[in-house]
Design a binder for these strands. Sequence first.
DNA 1: CATGAATGAGGATTCATTCAT
DNA 2: GATGAATGAATCCTCATTCAT
Lengths: 240, 240, 240, 240
Amino acid sequence: MNSPVKGALTCGPKLAVVLPKQERSRRTREKLILAAAQLFEERGFEKTTSNDIAAVAGVSIGSFYAYFSDKRQVLLLLFEQRIAERLNAVFSNFTEDDLTGNDLRGCIERCIHRTFVNKAESPGLTRLIYDLAPKDEAVGALCRRLMDDSVENLAALLRRAVDLGLTQLADPKTTATAIVYAVEAVARKCVLEDGLPRSAWEPYITCLTEMTYGFVFGATYPMAAQEADQPPASSEKKPT
Amino acid sequence: MNSPVKGALTCGPKLAVVLPKQERSRRTREKLILAAAQLFEERGFEKTTSNDIAAVAGVSIGSFYAYFSDKRQVLLLLFEQRIAERLNAVFSNFTEDDLTGNDLRGCIERCIHRTFVNKAESPGLTRLIYDLAPKDEAVGALCRRLMDDSVENLAALLRRAVDLGLTQLADPKTTATAIVYAVEAVARKCVLEDGLPRSAWEPYITCLTEMTYGFVFGATYPMAAQEADQPPASSEKKPT
Amino acid sequence: MNSPVKGALTCGPKLAVVLPKQERSRRTREKLILAAAQLFEERGFEKTTSNDIAAVAGVSIGSFYAYFSDKRQVLLLLFEQRIAERLNAVFSNFTEDDLTGNDLRGCIERCIHRTFVNKAESPGLTRLIYDLAPKDEAVGALCRRLMDDSVENLAALLRRAVDLGLTQLADPKTTATAIVYAVEAVARKCVLEDGLPRSAWEPYITCLTEMTYGFVFGATYPMAAQEADQPPASSEKKPT
Amino acid sequence: MNSPVKGALTCGPKLAVVLPKQERSRRTREKLILAAAQLFEERGFEKTTSNDIAAVAGVSIGSFYAYFSDKRQVLLLLFEQRIAERLNAVFSNFTEDDLTGNDLRGCIERCIHRTFVNKAESPGLTRLIYDLAPKDEAVGALCRRLMDDSVENLAALLRRAVDLGLTQLADPKTTATAIVYAVEAVARKCVLEDGLPRSAWEPYITCLTEMTYGFVFGATYPMAAQEADQPPASSEKKPT
DNA sequence: CATGAATGAGGATTCATTCAT
DNA sequence: GATGAATGAATCCTCATTCAT
């Protein structure tokens, strides 16, 4: 139990030299995390052994267990480090001001685009998370929290939109759920399953934008592609 | 249309796959498959050992290997037997006649409902499939083909709708993809993740119906619940 | 989990051939137990690995774990098989009839002698038991039960002796405890620690016999060695 | 008389054993020994790691190895420091004068009582010693020498008693062995195994006192408690 | 002197798979 | 065909010990 993780017991009379040991520690830990990320991406969770991780990191297996209790812990760490902020990033840049702005549709489109980008940035890890979520309680919880967060963010926006009279949406929470999961699913399919290049995302993003925007803020005819370029201010379409 | 799903599992000259002719054989095989189904549902794939399957089936481990090359093969078999038809069932009862019928919206709603029911009928196995799809080539292929099939079915319907002048939809394939994945994702969330009872599906199914119907066949206002009951006959919208 | 230990699940249509499989099983198990006994005696518990046991038994490590959950279980088995009956044997052949018989002293002597013999028959294992008793709950419980049994047996005899007016002993239970533990301790010292040959046990056994017999049934003078050789029926010995 | 106990632990030219001269050193060493004592008591020898000891001592594992070659050495040290004097203390306060004094029985009783107290003062460590004695040559040797010492002390007293005509005891050495081991065994059982409080020792101590005193110095009838108070000069007790 | 990160041999345990009966 | 005992490679994890700082 000389784990460098808990250096709380003694560190002697620290003078000027505070970093060197901690520095080496930090690097070893970092090497392990990087190695784990790489291997998890390449082989998946089950097929990566703790020995593999240590080997790829270029440290001993003992060191691995000095820093982590097991490979699951590393995964959780990676998850929190890399994925969480990305998923949360989607709606974080969608403020209430956007609701009344002129480029509401563009805003939505950027959110959706961001979701696609997220997946593309670490496809293996993202895949991994979805693999493990049903099996691992902690991973599942994180996953669920992230989705719930997204839903909640969107629901808040929709409620605001209702208050502002921008939409007559009956059930913001359910609508938010549907939208978030729809966007998520399509993004996953395009980026992770089909491995589409960014250039090929366009039609999907447009379609999702249309579908959600239309549903929430008033219908636009399901229009031909060239028509889709028109300004979203299609309120005059329902002059009844 | 969904024919390519079957016959996919011929794994070369594996003796084990030959269907046994004798009655006793058939029963042994059946017992093994049932046991595997049960255990996969209960414990997941990795945590089910071939020995467990044989034990629960009440036969020897030797017999297991007489019938199957390994547990993965049993899973693929199960997948074929149980899941394929269900997923395919969604669009199989949605014929071209429905497009011109009066209850188009009801039809869509039933399709979506069917997707939810599918998940509820064997949650463990469904979950399993999604777990393994990213890791196992064959499972992934089956999974993908099923989704592709659904998408293709819907896309065909949408194209027909375009031909009939019912919609001006620009890109039926992309739209079909978005809809199928959206419905799938929300169904999974409600049924598998949240474990909602059937009575709680209603708002989600309604929301998805509205969103997709509206997107494809012309906008309905994002209306309050009671308004949603109104007939979908928004024909006056396309009087042009 | 194809452990041969639990053959309960299936055994097929057993005809005349019931033994062959079970026979092989039995032999493997026996080989493992023997190997374990040997190694435990030679090296002690901690320094014997399950792999060692399997290797010495000439079977695979997998087989070891098919029959036992771990090496501790083997030890407990050995303990019960070999030690229990021996310790219990000490007082089992000391019946109430002996109390009124002429050779009460001889009887006691034989009991004490039996305790020495027990230790000599499997010194390594006996030693082992005493090693592990303080550390392993189950071993400790067995150990305690055996001693308690011995004490209880002796206490019952003493109470009977009191009833018969053979002694005025005040506290049979405490006396029984003292005697049993005393005999046990001296036997252990002579046989296990000093490794005395049987020929050298004599003085210790005589001394213990005198001490306990004298204490319980009336004092005999602590006599000189040559006197001790005389027939034990000796109350009339000190008519001085 | 008990001098050979000390000085036994010089383990060749081990640098680690050199007593450090500097104050800081001495304290570090002391902290390590205390920590080891605590952990050995709490967890036993095998389950205490050298890292644990260093951690609890609040020093680095490196320091541990600077002072001791391994944890076994610490144990031997502890044994010397704490146990040796206690065991030896039993007979140290039993001088030849007591033999002719009036309170011979009380003297014996105090010796026996002291043995019980010894066990109670560091039960964990005492237990530990008995655990390790059979496995560790050095521990075993120390253990044996302590017991031998006690036996030798008592034997010397008995021989003196014979010389003084107080007893006709034939074999003082064997008798001493029996007594010492008997007292030791009962003390261990009461204090370590059963964890009896001091108040519950009484009957055992009385019983042992009676048994040994009676055996050596002439029989007393196995009497009821109140009779036990009578003077031990009792040859005329069996005037039958 | 003290530190504590790093090491890696070694032990426990699992489970897919084979094969003699 | 069926059986189930046997196999052993592979994995996880611990801990005594070293050594560069």
